[in-house]
Every structure is written in C-alpha cells, then in structure tokens.
C-alpha cells in the first residue's frame, strides 16, 4: 500500500511539473486575480468558440455565446472550485449549458411558429456532449505545446507510425516515443481535471 501511494504521488508530481502554469491559472482565476480572465480566455476561447460554432452553425451567434460565456464565468468565478477541476473545463461546461439553452430556445421558437404547442420540446443533449468532449480533448492536445502537440496530432489524428514521425520531424525515434509517453500522461491528467469540472 505504501508503495502504491508513493508511486501515485510521484506520478502526480511528475505530470504536474509538466504544466504547472495550468494549476496556477486555475488558482488565480478563482481568486479573481487581475489578468486571469484574459489568460483563461487565451486558453479556452478557441474551445468555447469552436463548440458554439459547430453546434449553432452561425458565426454571429457563436461569437455571442463566447462573449456571454466568459462574462458569466468572470461574474460567477466564486462558484468555481479549483480543487475540483480545471477552469478550462469549467468554462466549457458553462458554454455547453448556454448552447443547450440557445438550442432549446430555437426549438421553442420553431414550435411556436409551427403552433404545435402540445409537442414536448425535443431535448437531446448528447450530440452536444460528444462534441464538447472532442473539442475538450483537442484543446488538451493543443495545450501540450510544440513539439508534443504536433507529435500527438501526427500519431493519434493522422495515424502515423512512430518511425514515420521520427523521420518527418528529424527526431530520434526514442525521443518521439518519450514525447508520446509524456504526452499521454499529461493528457490523462488534463482530461481528468477537465472532466471533473465540465
């Protein structure tokens, strides 16, 4: 038992040491520190905007949802608990609810126009959840930063072998493999943190 705990703690420290700036951002944002919203925006706005764009299919609406989400996040930062999960995941969660509401409002409006008032509003949040999950993962990959984000994209998104990646990036094979391992561990940590607050 002591060994297991020790290993887990070592793993935690090692992975966190990879991206200490994330936890720092989470804490700063929770404390309402100056500039923290801008940093969170830089990190999470592409996720929120992409989710809104893909779900709503309208550029103006997507910008609007992005704006609302970050204003609401700032005003509601008291409700964010950094110990529970990442601020990035939390913000994507806010965006998801806003988008779901916007889709609901559309459905209501459509129903109103069609005057079929006794039909219940169809609400299937699953496509949105799936989309949010994929975008969240994409964001975690992005936040690995180069060269890891590139290596992960080549390996997992484009299906290149480790040898092909080594070749393409003129990098020793062992380095590619090592980057992929570290990346996988960092992604697990990042996704756990995001899942926790989504």
């Amino acid at each position: 038992m002591r060994i297991a705990v020790g290993t887990a703690m070592a793993a935690e420290t090692a992975v966190r040491a990879d991206r200490p700036e994330d936890r720092e951002l989470d804490r700063d944002f929770a404390a309402g520190a100056e500039g923290s919203l801008e940093r969170l925006y830089a990190s999470a706005a592409p996720l929120v905007h992409t989710l809104a764009l893909r779900s709503l299919g309208d550029a103006a609406e997507a910008e609007d949802v992005t704006q609302q989400t970050f204003v609401a996040a700032w005003r509601g930062r008291d409700g964010y608990r950094p110990e529970r999960g990442s601020a990035r995941g939390w913000v994507v969660g806010i965006a998801r609810r806003r988008i779901a509401d916007a889709l609901d409002a559309r459905a209501r409006e459509r129903r109103r126009l069609e005057a079929v008032a006794d039909q219940p509003v169809a609400r299937d949040p699953d496509p949105l959840a799936t989309e949010a999950e994929r975008i969240m993962v994409r964001g975690e990959v992005e936040s690995l930063g180069p060269p890891r984000s590139t290596i992960v994209a080549l390996a997992f998104f484009e299906g290149h072998t480790h040898e092909q990646i080594a070749d393409r990036l003129s990098m020793p094979l062992g380095t590619v493999k090592s980057h992929l391992r570290r990346s996988l561990l960092a992604l697990r940590h990042g996704l756990e943190a995001a899942d926790a607050s989504l």
Partner: peptide, 20 residues
C-alpha cells in the same frame, strides 16, 4: 484522443475579447 481527430479549433475574432 483518437476520437478528437478532425476537430479543428477556431479561435474567435479579436472583437469578442474587446466586447468582453
């Protein structure tokens, strides 16, 4: 991670941050 293949992130235009 493999499931996220094909997702391209689109950053919002600068005016969104200005508006926020």
């Amino acid at each position: 991670v493999q499931g996220a293949a094909g997702v391209e992130l689109v950053a919002p235009p600068a005016r969104v941050w200005t508006a926020i």
